[in-house]
Each structure stands twice: as structure tokens, then as C-alpha cells.
């Protein structure tokens, strides 16, 4: 898994947004006024034409459209990897998860949407009892996912979260107590 899909969409993880270090100590050859004037005009024209090339390309390629006709294409809806839905806790085949009940995510959450309720196993070791996640106050900011050192929670892709019953927004994310490799 790359950095990007772990944290959802985070601009500082996308290399394209990184600024190149500014070049210093590189003196441009001195131009005369007329040469500068001409280079301004021709450079400007060229950059305008470059922009026009991009827009005409997207115009002539309707396939590049990213808009989804949502309710109609419900069956073939294509989700992008960067999309952030509600917080989920991935489980393996045996129904076990990765959480150690360290409560870092609880501390990271600005809205107090997470409550990690630890418990103790027979050996007296701290394990996760209940992972309570309140969807109604969550702002889908992914700070909890970033804070988790064990990669136990992620942003899901589900977005049809409307419900008529407010109580159903308080979720328990873990299926059973403990962790798959304790």
C-alpha cells in the first residue's frame, strides 16, 4: 500500500504538488528591452496556446469526463481510490482486526467521534473491547487514520449513509474482542 491510499487524499503526499527548490546564483543573460518585450509576447502567446491545447483535447475526448451520473449508474458506479467515506476497520478472514487499543486515534479525533474501550484478556494484557465510532459527529477528516500506527482503520468507500434513525449512527467497528496476533 502506498502512502496516498492509506491516508486518503492528502495533497502533501502527491509528488506533483511539491515545489522544486528555487534555483539561485544563476544569472540570466541580460536582455535588451526590445528582446524582453518580444520574448514576453511570444512566450505569453505560447503559454496561451498550450492552455488552449489542453482544453480542446478534453473537449474532443468525451471519455476524459470524470462526472458520474450517480443515481442512474448505481450498479456501475466507479469509485476513485482517493475517496473518503466513513471510517472502517478492516478484518481478515477469521474476523480479526489489527487494533491494539492504543487510543491514539481517539486522541487525534477533533470531534471526539471515537471511543476506544479497552479490556484485559486472560493473560492480563490490554486488548480492544469495543471500538465505538460515531458517524453523526465525524467530519471524515481522516486524522484518526493518519494517527493509527498499526494501520488498523481506514477510510471506506461507502457514502450512502443516510438513515432515519439517529441511534444507528453509533457504530461498533470491531467484530470481536482482541486482536488477530496478540
Amino acid at each position: 500500500m502506498t502512502e496516498v491510499d492509506k491516508h486518503g487524499s492528502r495533497p502533501q503526499n502527491l509528488g506533483a504538488f511539491e515545489r522544486e527548490p528555487e534555483k539561485q546564483d544563476e544569472e540570466k543573460p541580460k536582455q535588451g528591452m526590445i528582446a524582453r518585450y518580444c520574448s514576453l509576447i511570444f512566450g505569453g502567446t505560447k503559454s496561451l496556446l498550450t492552455g488552449m491545447k489542453v482544453t480542446i483535447f478534453t473537449f474532443l475526448n468525451p471519455k476524459s469526463t470524470v462526472t458520474q451520473q450517480y443515481p442512474e449508474n448505481k450498479d456501475t458506479l466507479e469509485m476513485k481510490e482517493r475517496f473518503r467515506g466513513q471510517v472502517i476497520m478492516p478484518h481478515n478472514e477469521d474476523g480479526e482486526h489489527n487494533c491494539t487499543a492504543c487510543t491514539l486515534c481517539e486522541k487525534a479525533c477533533p470531534n471526539g467521534s471515537i471511543n476506544v474501550l479497552p479490556t484485559k484478556n486472560i493473560a492480563g494484557k490490554k486488548i480492544l473491547g469495543k471500538y465505538i465510532y460515531r458517524l453523526d459527529t465525524c467530519t471524515i477528516c481522516a486524522l484518526c487514520v493518519e494517527a493509527c500506527p498499526f494501520d488498523a482503520i481506514r477510510m471506506g468507500q461507502d457514502f450512502e449513509l443516510a438513515t432515519l434513525n439517529k441511534d444507528s449512527l453509533e457504530l461498533v467497528l470491531n467484530k470481536k474482542e482482541g486482536r488477530w496476533k496478540s
Binding site: T55, T58, F59, S64, T65, V66, Q69
Partner: peptide, 13 residues
């Protein structure tokens, strides 16, 4: 419509 398709949208549908 044209603006939509130039910006990878669909425009009014």
C-alpha cells in the same frame, strides 16, 4: 455544454 466538456464535466444533463 462546451465549458462542461472542457473541464471534464458533462454540463446540464
Amino acid at each position: 455544454k462546451v465549458s462542461g466538456h472542457m473541464q471534464r464535466r458533462l454540463g446540464p444533463m
